[in-house]
């Protein structure tokens, strides 16, 4: 998978590039709009991550240029502006998703992967399995080691999200906004509390813990040795 990153702030470009590379992507970086547009039009990319405020050509112009020359690469817009107007404009022009600075890298990664999933049309499996934890998404049934676990709806969707992103860190904001569709105070500890309840049901009676806290960032569900 190949990603184009157009970002003029070298520090941001650096950590995004490193993070994406660690997640297994090949990343090309452009530091100005013209280079970015040129690359987008000449190289095949799976996703483009484009900042709005850029030298030479701004991000929206790049997207317009890409779309008018028939490049269909999904675009994730990065912006320091957070007004709904900018978001709407970015998406109308042909962006596929929008992320406001500052962002958690985990969230950027999740969005990039979602764009790739959307482009390749894979809806994801209906049965999720991590170690001995099994979720039947359609029958809404969860078992661990063959024993059924009863979850409340919010807990179920939280666990589904964690399992779909196995091995990847998900942030509190991602959980609140994408899993529960709730506009909330980021500082509230409702997510912690909910994770705590989920752990009680999923991990408590088992030696091998699956849900881990990444301090300061969020949570990850994975099998650790």
């Amino acid at each position: 998978m190949r990603i184009l990153l157009v970002e003029d702030d070298t520090k941001i470009a650096d950590f995004v590039q490193k993070g994406l590379q660690e997640a297994g992507f090949a990343v090309d970086c452009a530091q100005d709009g013209e280079t970015g547009l040129h690359l987008a039009q000449t190289e095949p990319y799976d996703v483009a991550v484009i900042d709005i405020m850029l030298p030479l050509l701004d991000g929206l112009t790049i997207i317009e240029g890409m779309r008018s020359s028939g490049v269909k690469t999904p675009v994730l817009i990065l912006s320091a502006k957070r007004s709904v107007d900018d978001r709407v404009r970015g998406l109308r022009i042909g962006g596929d998703d929008y992320l406001t600075k500052p962002f958690a890298f985990s969230e950027l990664l999740a969005r990039v992967q979602a764009l790739i999933r959307r482009a390749t049309g894979s809806a994801g499996p209906s049965t999720l399995e991590v170690a001995d934890l099994v979720m039947d998404v359609y029958r809404r049934k969860v078992t661990r080691g063959g024993r059924e676990i009863y979850l409340q709806p919010l807990e179920f969707s939280l666990l589904e999200y964690l399992m779909r992103n196995t091995g990847q860190v998900v942030t509190k904001t991602m959980i609140m906004e994408h899993v529960w569709d709730y506009n909330f105070n980021p500082r509230t500890n409702v997510v912690e509390a909910r994770i705590c309840y989920l752990r009680d049901k999923v991990d408590k009676d088992f030696d091998r813990k699956l849900i881990h806290t990444v301090r300061g960032v969020g949570y990850v569900l994975e099998e650790r040795d």
């Binding site: 007004s83 409340q152 919010l154 709730y182 509230t188 509390a193």
Partner: peptide, 26 residues
């Protein structure tokens, strides 16, 4: 900008309750 969404008020309230229930339970 003020959006105009159609929604059910009791759903809105019970969702809020559900989200905050762990804090209340504590």
């Amino acid at each position: 900008d003020i959006a105009r969404d159609e929604f059910n008020v009791s759903d809105l309230l019970s969702d809020a309750c559900e989200i905050y229930r762990p804090l209340a339970d504590d």
